[in-house]
Write a protein that binds this DNA or RNA. Structure first.
Length: 427
DNA sequence: TCTGGGGTCCTAGGACCC
DNA sequence: TCTGGGGTCCTAGGACCC
């Protein structure tokens, strides 16, 4: 539900989150240009301020900036087990600062401040900031605004303009002051305005957040659609997006990876598909859904246009919605075998679980007791893997023999989630 | 040589129906 | 030959988010 006018949204997020997580356990990374790389050490997905200052852009392929190692650039492979755990700690501290929290992504939360009246929210967020820093070790910034879009904007200002000291309250400024700051933010930096829209807006001479705020909503709707119209209204203080405290279950679950090296053999593709399906099945059971359609896809390397290209997808409807890894894996393998062609160098494979519905509404098949055993076994396996570590139990066919596993050249240990990898303190 | 992964929503167009 | 109008559903593609 949209909030009443006096309600305020806060948006708090971690600065250079993945890099900050690495720095908590490896202080030698402080004050140095550091980047965190995507799977297979493919692209830059996080940058320290020093790395940004070197001109490294978000998302660039690592091989294009790798030469900067000579200038002191340090690269870490991504360590999602660590980031997810640090995120949970950070979110739980943030959640203590408002009764209403929406965890929006791995590194940011919206907080809704309803009925806080004359409470000094700016001070409030400064305290939050200090506490997250002290308890979790992650630097964060906060923005306050009358809508989510304005809170996002305020957060961006808090990051960029040093005079805010890490917290920016947009509604505490008079209109003239707001306009001054909004005219310094590019339209493309507004939440909901992507690359394509930025180009189209520029052609209409709408270049800054202030220009966009002043654009007539009807005109924007007609030229760009309802999504951008909402953004414009939100910029003007009309809340179009409410707080979503209760995350809706996913409508679709995807598990896919690029391979560490190109794959040509069906046997290796089978291993990879089984291992991705194990991941997808865990997610499905965690949200207690069942799946009616399984998808499998393959992809050759689109960056090598001289090679023959092939990117097929198979969708396999299940006889009745299922939740257990055995049924899902069988369908996926059948799909894989139907689309596999010899003679291609595959770069990536993936599975999709589609047409999900709550397990409680699931329809039972012809052999419910057999089905029930499989579900029980899958859930048991989830619990064991949860306790003993991922892949302690897995489907036999997913044992790896090939080189499809991803590369992670410089990964940090799972400091907080594995007893074997706890950091040691020496005096 | 080397280029991530996982989501959502909106829209346009076609098939189909009455 | 001439050939309405409106609704639904599905799909593919585009755009956006992190």
């Amino acid at each position: 539900m949209p909030s009443t006018p006096s309600d305020l949204y806060g948006l708090i997020d971690g600065n250079n989150f993945y890099v900050s997580c690495e720095r908590v356990f490896n202080p030698r990374l402080e004050n140095k240009p550091v980047v965190v790389l995507s799977n297979n050490d493919g692209c830059v997905v996080a940058r320290s301020q020093e790395a940004k200052d070197l001109g490294i852009k978000m998302g660039v392929p690592w091989f294009q900036v790798r030469h900067l190692e000579r200038k002191g650039l340090i690269a870490q492979s991504s360590n999602y087990a660590l980031y997810a755990d640090m995120s949970a700690r950070m979110m739980s501290v943030m959640g203590q600062y408002s009764p209403r929290q929406e965890v929006y992504s791995i590194d940011e939360s919206f907080l809704l401040f309803e009925g806080f009246g004359s409470w000094n929210l700016q001070e409030h967020l400064h305290r939050l900031r200090a506490q997250v820093r002290q308890w979790v070790g992650i630097p964060v910034c906060g923005g306050l605004g009358s809508t989510k879009t304005r809170a996002k904007l305020a957060n961006r200002l808090a990051k960029r303009e040093l005079e805010f000291g890490g917290v920016c309250h947009l509604e505490s400024m008079d209109l003239r002051e707001q306009a001054r700051y909004l005219s310094r933010v590019e339209a493309g930096d507004v939440w909901g305005v992507g690359r394509r829209t930025t180009e189209k807006l520029a052609a209409l001479n709408i270049r800054t957040a202030l220009d966009l705020l002043k654009a007539p909503p009807d005109f924007i709707r007609q030229r760009f659609g309802v999504a951008l119209e909402r953004t414009v209204r939100e910029l003007n203080g009309l809340a179009c997006f409410g707080l979503e405290d209760e995350p809706a279950p996913r409508q679709q679950i995807v598990a896919s990876r690029s391979f560490g090296q190109r794959v040509t053999e069906l046997s290796e593709l089978r291993e990879s598909v089984l291992s991705y399906m194990a991941r997808a099945g865990e997610k499905l059971r965690r949200q207690n859904s069942v799946c009616a359609v399984v998808g499998v896809f393959l992809r050759t390397n689109a960056f090598a246009p001289e090679e023959p290209q092939y990117h097929p997808m198979a969708t396999i409807p299940l006889p009745s919605p299922a939740q257990d890894s055995f049924t899902l894996a069988k369908a996926a393998i059948r799909g894989l075998e139907s689309i596999y062609r010899k003679g291609y160098r595959y770069q990536k494979a993936g599975v999709m679980l589609m047409e999900l519905s709550p397990a409680s509404q699931g329809q039972y098949g012809l052999f419910p007791e057999e089905n029930g055993d499989r579900v029980t076994l899958s859930r048991l396996s989830d619990r064991i893997n949860d306790r003993m570590g991922r892949d302690t139990l897995r489907l036999a066919g997913s044992l790896e023999t090939g080189g499809w596993r991803m590369r992670r050249g410089a990964a940090s240990p799972a400091y907080t989630t594995s007893w074997r990898e706890l950091p040691l303190a020496s005096s």
